[in-house]
């Protein structure tokens, strides 16, 4: 049986798709057969970030409506052997998704994959609801600012009450907090909520803190998941997060302000 992980947030633009791509790729890098499903029907992005947009023939909605088989719709990653993407449809909207259809696809994928990553759309409506409904674990992506924290809190409430596990009285969804776009300098200046503040309000396990980094935008534009950029701090932070997701104890990094080195100060160089 595959482990179904939803990447969700409530709020838009916090880095759900970047995270889905990075975590999915990270799991595949560690030898786990993984599929990432884009639930953002009508606003598909995952294929761009994974760099497979030119190879999309059939999508998630086609499979749900039985216009195509899963084997036809799954896009194999060019870089990694055991990584697949199921793209969203760009021409339809969220109503094209049905609970029965999603269940059918997830059940079929469960038979051959170890991990199913569900990239949730923003909001708490149908698309987001179906993305988290069948989940075993949830990665709640949050930016260190009050509106994002509040939306994540709302999402955690829905995870605890409106998911299949909640409705059937099973063990609740395991919740992880992933803090993205974190800037220690701005926290020190009091412009941003600190890790402790967010942890205190949301009161769930911290999976990782991804620093604000230019490498994320660069990776998105190039269609390469940022976790593959081993030089970047964001890539390393995602890598740590995947290890923690797999149960390893890894110390948190990138939480403190970096002191510029001697040469950097001399030449004013920037990363």
């Amino acid at each position: 049986m595959a482990k179904i992980i939803v990447v969700t947030s409530g709020k838009g633009g916090v880095g759900k798709t970047t995270t889905s791509a990075a975590i999915g790729t990270g799991l595949a890098l560690r030898g786990h057969k993984t599929v990432i499903i884009d639930f953002d029907v009508g606003l598909r992005n995952l294929d761009l970030i994974m760099g497979c947009e030119r190879r999309v023939v059939y999508d998630f909605v086609n499979v749900i409506h039985s216009d195509a088989t899963l084997a036809q719709a799954l896009i194999k990653d060019k870089r990694l052997e055991n990584l697949y993407v199921l793209a969203a449809s760009q021409t339809r909207d969220k109503d094209a998704l049905t609970q029965e259809g999603v269940e059918k696809v997830i059940t079929e994928l469960s038979a051959s994959f170890e991990y199913i990553i569900c990239d949730s759309p923003a909001g708490i409506e149908k698309g987001a609801h179906l993305a988290m409904y069948f989940a075993d674990e949830a990665i709640v992506v949050t930016n260190p600012e009050v509106s994002s924290v509040r939306d994540s809190d709302r999402m955690l409430g829905l995870l605890a009450s409106k998911s299949r596990r909640a409705e059937q009285g099973l063990e609740p969804i395991k919740e992880h907090l992933l803090l993205t776009r974190y800037s220690p300098e701005r926290v020190t200046n009091g412009e941003m909520l600190g890790v402790e503040d967010v942890e205190e309000i949301l009161a769930i396990r911290l999976l990782g803190v991804i620093p604000e980094s230019k490498s994320v935008l660069k990776a998105s534009n190039q269609g390469i998941p940022v976790i593959l950029d081993e030089q970047s701090d964001a890539g390393q932070a995602y890598s740590d997060a995947v290890d923690r997701l797999l149960g390893k104890e890894v110390d948190h990094r990138f939480l403190d302000v970096k002191k510029p080195g001697f040469l950097q100060r001399l030449f004013g160089g920037r990363e």
Binding site: D153, R154, L156, G157, L158, A160, S161, A203
Partner: peptide, 8 residues
């Protein structure tokens, strides 16, 4: 015994 989240 569990957190009461926004919207609940």
């Amino acid at each position: 015994t569990t957190p009461v989240r926004g919207g609940q």
